[in-house]
Design a protein around this nucleic acid. Structure first.
Length: 503
RNA sequence: GGCGGCAUAGCCAAGUGGUAAGGCAGAGGACUGCAAAUCCUUUAUCCCCCGGUUCGAAUCCGGGUGCCGCCUCCA
């Protein structure tokens, strides 16, 4: 099977055939840096992170470009509120972006252009449109003339008449037509400004993505991605201005991720019902959020709740337990031998192909995870109770695990050591849950958990071992219960007792 | 008003013409001093409702109901 993707342009799945065999140019709309990122941003970024990882996994040489929008009205407003230069705002939130998304394990793109770093390109593209009669200057602004692009609406499936009939198009006297949008905006006194043929001003929102994507990837490139909410008007406008300027098709495949919902409603800044990534990463380990996001198809809406996160954690724990076993096999000196024979292990041996089948179907991570769980069940059957005493079995187990590890890597999962995963303790826990009727302020209140030290845990395990040896099971069970109440889970194995944090 | 999407077990979620993946939770069994973990078995006679097409539909078509999104900044 070969990769097919759902192309918003045309609203159907199509075989993916890149412009240049073996190479993929991909541009994803990034964030406007005026505030902390929320889970919606996390979803978009994780979705495209997995897409890039998979494309590379299948052998494509991917050039991945993701921008920062670092000049716009919201940034200016924030800077004014805080009485700082706009660069201070963007610098701060770009820093926050990396801090949050590095924890989520996002790949760094090959290029991360910023609008303010591409003013000459933006001005040049705007001039090109003006010269071509596709745009017109009015009093320091420059507007794109939508009427001059007959295909306007081809991405979002809208037609110009319907848009005009909608009462929500703002009326601006200076525009020739209500649908026209700004390529360049004249600056008011005191606002950030760059010189241009039309006087001091700054770029409109849409033009930066056209200018920066074409600069990095050429006038026609393979994949353009972003959230569903960018289809109209942002991407529609990008197409209009880019294709009007070049006369060539702009992006060939348009990929859009679905929203994160809270209580079945879109989470967004404007609705105020959002959780920042930091809120979430204070509650769960980053990979739990990744697992949660990967457990739905990227185009489907996904409902965020404590319960879903808890289920994701349980599922990811299960996967990490497999990695934990692989690590103990390796620690026991085993080396990977060969994958197990026999029909019952087919889900394991066939995992790479099954995984690829799922991912080839428009990056179906939910189905791919299902195949991985099938493989994990088969692999667990082989787990040696005592790796050091059963090297042969340990070697087969390791070989099986190594078949799977690259697939987990495509999803960005199981990237930590199992020990760190199970013994990484979250610093804070939240009071209150995220469920129907919960307000955001309830949910983000935090309290510090009182901790028990690892030495103390070891001490108590030793006391319990002694009690068990003396068959004082009541005492042994009491110790286990106390530790459990402190969030520590004990597991008795053949070679001794191990522990992990429960949360 | 215009355009679009979704409705699958207690919960999450794949599947889009051939007779319901997977996860979580639950039940029984094996293992264990008991647990935990793991393994085995089990949990939707049926995929919102009503019609239709078909040898055959959760999957296609028509109608209905419900929910959501876009048309304004938004991942």
């Amino acid at each position: 099977m070969t990769l097919s993707v759902f192309n918003t342009m045309g609203s159907r799945k199509e075989p993916f055939v890149p412009l240049v065999p073996g190479k993929v140019g991909m541009y994803v709309c990034g964030v406007t840096v005026y505030d902390l990122c929320h889970i919606g941003h996390a979803r978009a970024n994780v979705a495209f992170d997995i897409i890039v990882r998979y494309l590379r996994h299948t052998g494509y040489d991917v050039t991945y470009v993701r921008n920062f929008t670092d000049i716009d009205d919201k940034i200016i407003r924030k800077a004014n509120q805080e009485g700082v230069p706009f660069e201070a705002v963007t610098k701060k939130y770009i820093g926050a972006f990396y801090e949050d998304f590095d924890r989520l394990g996002l790949l760094r793109p090959d290029a991360e252009p910023k609008a303010t770093g591409h003013i000459p390109e933006i001005v040049a593209l705007t001039e090109r449109l003006v010269r071509a009669g596709k745009a017109y200057p009015v009093g320091g602004d420059v507007y794109y003339s939508v009427k001059g692009f007959p295909e306007y609406g081809k991405l979002s499936g809208k037609n110009v008449e319907d848009l005009l009939a909608g009462a929500r198009v703002d009326v601006d006297e200076r525009k020739n037509d209500p649908l026209d949008f700004a390529l360049w905006k004249a600056s008011k006194p005191g606002e950030p400004a760059w010189e241009s043929p039309w006087g001091p001003g700054r770029p409109g929102w849409h033009i930066e993505c056209s200018a920066m994507s074409m600069k990095r990837l050429g006038e026609t490139f393979d994949i353009h991605g972003g959230g569903k909410d960018l289809v109209f008007p942002h991407h529609e406008n990008e197409i209009a201005q880019s294709e009007a300027a070049t006369g060539k098709p702009f992006a060939r495949y348009w990929l859009h991720n679905g929203f994160v919902n809270i209580n079945n409603e879109k989470m967004s800044k404007s609705l105020g019902n959002f959780f920042t990534l930091r809120d979430v990463l204070a509650r769960v380990k980053p990979e739990v959020l990744r697992f949660f996001l990967a457990s739905s198809h990227y185009r489907s809406p996904i409902d965020y709740s404590d319960r879903s996160l808890g289920e994701a954690k349980a599922g990811l724990d299960r996967l990490y337990r497999v990695k934990e076993k692989a690590e103990s096999c390796r620690a026991a000196g085993a080396t990977p031998s060969s994958a197990p024979e026999g029909g019952e292990f087919e889900p394991l041996r066939g995992a790479p192909a099954r995984f690829a089948d799922a991912m080839d179907d428009d990056f179906n991570t939910a189905a791919a995870l299902g195949r991985l769980f099938d493989a994990v069940r088969a692999l667990n059957r082989l787990a040696p109770a005592e790796p050091s005493a059963d090297r042969e079995r340990a070697g087969i187990f390791l070989a099986g695990y190594e078949l799977l590890d690259p697939l987990f890597a495509v999803l960005g999962l199981l990237r930590a050591g199992a020990k760190e995963y199970f013994k990484e303790r979250l610093d804070v826990t939240h009071v209150g849950g995220i469920s129907s009727g919960t307000t955001i302020s309830d949910a983000v209140r935090v309290e510090i958990i009182s901790r028990i030290t690892e030495d103390e845990i070891e001490r108590r395990i030793e006391a319990r071992r002694a009690a068990r040896a003396a068959k004082q099971y009541a005492e042994a069970d009491r110790i286990r219960k106390d530790l459990e109440a402190a969030g520590v889970l004990l597991e008795d194995g053949k070679t001794g007792t191990t522990w992990k944090y429960k949360e």
